[in-house]
């Protein structure tokens, strides 16, 4: 399948597929929630992909990283909302979660770097570097290994919304 076509009006229409909301407190009470949510949602949205099983594995793999990012938020109040919508071969994840103002700034910078030229190189450096992968590197990896495009959108209150487009259907053989 080809890339997403942007019509003259700009944004293509993404059809909503599934949404899960929960209190961030509940979410961060157990690490395993990242795995549960990513696996469950991956399975639900992959059923009508051309290879549901492999799509689900790939989707869960990418989505879990995002959830692990949200898990590390330093703001303990508010809601986590995960929404998946679809346009052709692309699945869009919108992940909204509470965060501190400085974290929001950090995400905005991280996401703007992802689009940069040296994204791949910076990712490779991090793999051979000493530090465990930071949240920035995790976002970078989505772009490098899953061809994801990322952006940050405004959200109400002390929250941030990460919008990640994953063209996974085109990634398989």
């Amino acid at each position: 399948m080809g890339p997403v076509h942007h019509d003259l009006a700009g944004e293509p229409t993404f059809e909503p597929m599934i949404q899960i909301d929960m209190e961030i407190r509940t979410f961060v009470s157990a690490w395993r929630h990242c795995d549960y949510v990513s696996t469950y949602m991956a399975r639900m949205i992959s059923q009508n992909r051309s290879d549901s099983v492999r799509h689900s594995n790939l989707f869960s793999s990418a989505f879990n990283e995002l959830l692990e990012v949200a898990f590390r938020t330093r703001h303990a109040d508010g809601a986590l909302a995960c929404r998946v919508s679809r346009h052709g071969a692309t699945d869009r994840i919108e992940l909204t979660f509470p965060c501190l103002p400085e974290e929001r700034q950090f995400y905005e910078e991280a996401v703007s770097q992802v689009a940069g030229f040296e994204a791949r190189e910076r990712y490779l450096n991090s793999v051979s570097g000493d530090l465990a992968p930071s949240r920035e590197i995790v976002l970078l990896e989505l772009a490098v290994d899953y061809n994801a495009t990322l952006r940050v959108e405004e959200a109400d209150g002390d929250a941030i919304k990460l919008v990640v487009d994953l063209p996974l259907e085109g990634l398989q053989h």
């Binding site: 793999s61 692990e68 991090s126 793999v127 051979s128 992968p133 990896e141």
Partner: peptide, 12 residues
């Protein structure tokens, strides 16, 4: 499945 944290640990 393997998350980035684990991948990094083994890769290193």
């Amino acid at each position: 499945q393997m998350n980035n944290a684990a991948f990094h640990a083994f890769s290193r």
